[in-house]
Structure formats: C-alpha cells, structure tokens
C-alpha cells in the first residue's frame, strides 16, 4: 500500500532523513517513535507531499507521489492527515470543516456531504457540536473534528502527526479512543506519537527513529520488551 524507497530529505545543508525505506501493508498500524528532531514528522509529511523529498521514491497504491508529474492534490484526497495543532479551518463550523472537502474536492452534493459529516461527528462523539466554531471547542474536541474532516474524504490511509501532543492530559484519552476504533475497523495508519501505551496496544509494528534514520523496528512487544539497539534502549529507559 505504501512503499518508501531510500528517501533522503535535506533542508539546505541540514539532512533530516537519510536513506529511509519502509513498506506498509493494507490495514497495518505503524507507530513511529523517537526523540524530537529525529525526523519522524518530516517523514510523515513526505508521505503526502507536504515536504518534497530530496532523493528516493514514495509509492502510494502504486502511484509514485515523488514523481514531478504526479498530481499531488489527487493523491492527498486518498491520504488523510491529522496535525499536532489540529489546523481546523477557523472560519468554519465543525460541520463545515468536514463538508468542505467532500463538496469542493470530491464534488459531492451538500446533502450527501452533510449526511456523511453527521455520521462522522456521531462516530467521534460530537454530533451536538456540529454548529460550533473551532475556538468554541476544547483541544480534544477539535482534534476529533479534525479526524472526522480527514475521514470524510474516504482516505485509504491515515497519517497522524503527534495528534495528542498539544492536548491537556485529560483529553488525550478521547482522541486515542477514536484512533483505536479506526484501527479496529481496519484503517491503514501511520502514527507519530509519544503515547507508548497506544503504540503497545494498537500498533502492529513500531519504528524507532533517530537522527533521520530508522534505527530499529519490530512488533511492539519485541521493541519495548527486548530492544536490540543501544540507542533504542537509552530512549526507552528515559520515557518508560
């Protein structure tokens, strides 16, 4: 489903990703952990073209998104993304945030888009907040709307970029619960997170990144229970 082949990403002289490769199977949940500055977020952002890779190829459903001729907007319809800082459209209500993509990009009718949006709001437990603006919602509520917004496009894969890092502790659970449900339904997911409990419980595979490379990967039980690399051990000893 996702095939990343030897990508390198440089910002000027700074190399953020070095020769990273990854294969993700349909319905797989891959969790990416690592210290800040290790390139996890940049890696995720490369997968929907928000960052352009310097070298290497990325294929999503056999479409090479790193090819200069590829229409990125088309690819992004199928790749949902959830941001650390939610990035809900501030001038639109929760409902409008969810319907604007289906209406303007997928060309659904307003009625169809709203039916879909209400169903998604119900799924994330916010049906009563349909007409609230983002600044009237708590962080956890905003992030759940943001997840619904991404799901409204019927993506084949969802990318989560530290979705709970900007939340108050008591709101983390409600967002993780929504993500767990998604994983159970078989959504293919890549999740950058510091929530080790989530990684252990939901992840099919955990990647540990440091200094722009994938240092170690494995099943959560293996990577957390019996890390092989010194760097991984050091990192886990600090956070667990």
């Amino acid at each position: 489903m996702i095939s990343v082949r030897n990508i390198t990403k440089k910002f000027g002289h700074l190399t953020v990703l070095t020769d990273v490769s990854l294969e993700v199977a349909p319905q797989e949940v891959v969790v990416i952990i690592g210290p800040s500055g290790s390139g996890k977020s940049t890696f995720l952002r490369c997968l929907n073209g928000l960052e352009k890779v310097t070298k290497g190829e990325i294929f999503i459903n056999n479409v090479e998104i790193t090819h200069s001729k590829t229409n990125l907007s088309k690819v992004r319809k199928e790749v949902g993304m959830v941001f650390q800082r939610f990035n809900l459209f501030q001038h639109l209500t929760a409902l409008q945030n969810i319907t604007i993509g289906p209406v303007e990009v997928l060309k659904l009718s307003k009625k169809e888009a709203e039916d879909r949006a209400y169903a998604l709001l119900e799924k994330v437990g916010l049906k009563d907040k349909a007409h609230s603006y983002p600044d009237q919602l708590s962080g956890g509520q905003q992030q759940r709307v943001a997840i619904a917004r991404a799901l409204a496009m019927n993506p084949i894969v969802m990318l989560f970029d530290e979705p709970t890092s900007a939340l108050d502790p008591e709101m983390v659970g409600e967002v993780l619960a929504v993500m767990k449900d998604l994983a159970k339904e078989g959504m293919t997911m890549l999740v950058v997170t510091h929530e080790m409990g989530f990684a252990r419980e939901v992840g099919d595979r955990v990647l540990f990144m440091d200094e722009g490379r994938i240092v170690e990967e494995g099943k959560p039980s293996e990577l957390f229970g019996n890390p092989k690399e010194e760097r991984t051990k050091l990192f886990l000893s600090k956070i667990l």
């Binding site: 929907n48 073209g49 990125l72 907007s73 992004r76 993304m81 941001f83 303007e104 990009v105 496009m153």
Partner: peptide, 19 residues
C-alpha cells in the same frame, strides 16, 4: 497550518486560497 490542512484534504492552491 490552514494551508497545509487545505492541501491535506486534496485542495489545490486555488481552492485553498479561495475557500
């Protein structure tokens, strides 16, 4: 972040600007 969110739901530059 508003532009990035617009791109991430498949909007092109023109749509992100307009909507």
């Amino acid at each position: 972040g508003q532009t990035e969110a617009a791109y991430s739901i498949g909007m092109n530059k023109f749509q992100a600007m307009r909507f």
